[in-house]
Design a protein around this nucleic acid. Sequence first.
DNA 1: TTGCTCCTCACGTCACGTGAGGTGGC
DNA 2: TTGCTCCTCACGTCACGTGAGGTGGC
Lengths: 152, 152
Amino acid sequence: MTESSLRIGQIAERLGLSPRTLRYYEEVDLLTPSSYSAGGTRRYDEAQVQRVLRIRELQAVMGFNLDEIREILHADDRLADLRAEYTEGGVSVERRQEILREASRINSRMQEQVLAKIGILQVFQHELEEKAAQYDEVAVELGIDLHDNAER
Amino acid sequence: MTESSLRIGQIAERLGLSPRTLRYYEEVDLLTPSSYSAGGTRRYDEAQVQRVLRIRELQAVMGFNLDEIREILHADDRLADLRAEYTEGGVSVERRQEILREASRINSRMQEQVLAKIGILQVFQHELEEKAAQYDEVAVELGIDLHDNAER
DNA sequence: TTGCTCCTCACGTCACGTGAGGTGGC
DNA sequence: TTGCTCCTCACGTCACGTGAGGTGGC
């Protein structure tokens, strides 16, 4: 019924991962299809694609495990609810403050981790460059050019 | 016999990982103790500590699995051999060129991956900063200060 | 000699991979 | 109706974690 809904194989290919991975995320309560057909076939749309991209980012780039990611996504979901309800009232101010504080704490922790990772990677990159320079020196002594792609 | 050799529990604690992890690395041919006591107790020295640090770096920062790391370390080992034998001769020039080319290719691939990761992390960091700014706006509307650590 | 640390099985766990065997939808 | 994709078990794998039960070294 939803416009342009996709089957599991289609979104798996689009995302570059296996159908099994998407079913597993559903199994551990990280991802819910937008609907099911009468026969049980899963349907997904753009919202699910974005959610999986977020999961993968948190997993591969940040190194969180799926339990931690579930917590973060649920905090995100709660903040989205907060923003939605903010304009129409209904939730107490105290509750809104509480959720906002939690989201802010998560954000701060993630910023710390991202900056730390960037620092480590930059040090690592410098080490690689120094090594490459050493290789080039030895290459000159051996009479070859490591950067001549036409060679070979 | 080697000066200042350490037992498995000592280097595990120094490295912040479990004895089991070090035994596992040995099991999959990534790490060999410098010696064993008559009773079978493993001994390690500084060279092993450095090797484990390298393994962890490649694993956590670069996202390689242990098979890939074994390949990289063996390439490193071969290059160390090359450098050692370089001054005393014995290996053919062709063989030296071959090993050097391989090490250079590995270095280039790793540099590409490191730079790609840094780029992703910087985009991610910007997104986090934008989100934090939004949180701060909502916080003002709710009459709280998210960065007042004295509060609470 | 007493503890604390070491040893080797060996089963458990997390995040999926990989068939086995069967039903569903353009 | 024919394929190709989907479905649900269910066992396998990688990188360790976690005891069980026993021996070793300052």
